[in-house]
Simulated assay, not measured.
Amino acid sequence: MTAVGTDHLPDAARSRRPARVRLLWSVAVLAALAVIMVASVALGSRGTTWSDVLAALGGADGSLEQAAVTKRIPRTLLAVLIGAALGLAGGVMQGVTRNPLADPGILGVNMGASLAVATAVAFFGLTSPTGYVWVAMTGAGAAAVFVYTVGSLGRGGATPLKLALAGAATSAAFASLVSAVVLPRNDIAGGFRLWQIGGVGGASYERIGHVLPFLAVGFAICLLSARALNSLALGDEVAAGLGERVAVIRATAALGAVVLCGAATAAAGPIAFVGLIVPHACRLLVGVDHRWLLPFSALIGAGLLTAADVVGRMVARPADVEVGIVTALIGAPFFIYIVRRQKVRDL
């Protein structure tokens, strides 16, 4: 693995935040997420009033406006869950690899899940919603192992830039393979094109119910790994000296991230850049302590994806711009900025 950090422990010390500041940011982030969720329920291609929103939240769907709000509620919940999963997975991946460029999309994990699902549907007749999740997690895990293996070859091991390049090449190759698998199949091509972009437009309570148990397991594994990731950030030798089993930490935390990525991709398609942007923003707010960083990554990831979905609905009314396109427009410039930063070797 790479070294500890650009300035090692002094940089980490400067990144600490007082508990009072963290609590204030917690309140602010929760309030912002609540506002974004209300906006997601209230705004869309059809205009609604507050009375329509309140009536729909109470179970009414007698008018077109109330029916529109009723349809937006599961869409909002799915966006919150998927955003939280991708934000948390990105924070864990960056902690496990000590790589500021780590992201489920950039490292090819999401596209690996996409290829596995496309292959299972096209050649094995996969139709079970739960089967989608298991297949997606398998593909995500295989892609993560493959990219890390390729990025570790040569001098210097798995440097951030080598991992990013390996992930980008793998994502491009997998995307081409998905097209090769899907395009000859007219019976599945139409639905896969929309799913491959990444979006939450077809959300339903049933879809949420299928992925929720997997997301809950992934959330639990990742959040319980926070203290161990703090030790890992000090370096492998120091972590081992503190009694941590480094290989077990990495494997367990990575498993949690893969579960989240697989479930999120199965439900909403391969959405990129959320896991890249969110942890960097959270470090500015609460510092580098993973016990705070990971929960904040989940909350801000939920807010970011939900806000991106609202923007996608508003900019092209009455049509929708899929949320995967909006996050790509936001995340691509941020990715370039991170790559160009000096001393971007590790966290």
Rank of each mutant, 00 (worst) to 15 (best):
M111Q: 15
P100R: 02
V109L: 12
M93K: 08
A79I: 15
G90Y: 08
R98W: 11
G105A: 08
T97C: 08
M93W: 13
N99S: 04
L101Q: 03
V96S: 01
L78I: 11
L78G: 02
A79L: 09
V109I: 15
M111V: 14
V92D: 06
L81F: 13
G108M: 09
N99E: 09
A79V: 14
A102T: 13
V109W: 01
L86Q: 02
G83E: 09
G108R: 00
L88M: 08
G95Y: 14
A79E: 15
G112C: 02
Q94T: 13
A84C: 03
M93V: 09
V109Q: 01
D103E: 15
V80I: 14
A102R: 02
I106N: 03
G95T: 11
V80Q: 00
L81C: 07
A102P: 12
L88V: 09
A85W: 07
V92E: 03
L101K: 06
R98Q: 12
I106V: 15
L81N: 07
P104T: 02
P104R: 00
A79M: 12
M93R: 04
G95F: 14
A85C: 11
V80Y: 01
I106E: 09
G83P: 12
I82F: 00
G90A: 01
G87E: 05
T97N: 06
M93S: 01
N99Q: 05
G90V: 12
G105T: 07
Q94E: 05
Q94G: 10
G91R: 10
V80E: 00
G108K: 01
G87C: 03
L86P: 05
R98A: 06
N99A: 06
D103M: 09
P100I: 11
I82D: 00
A84T: 05
V109R: 00
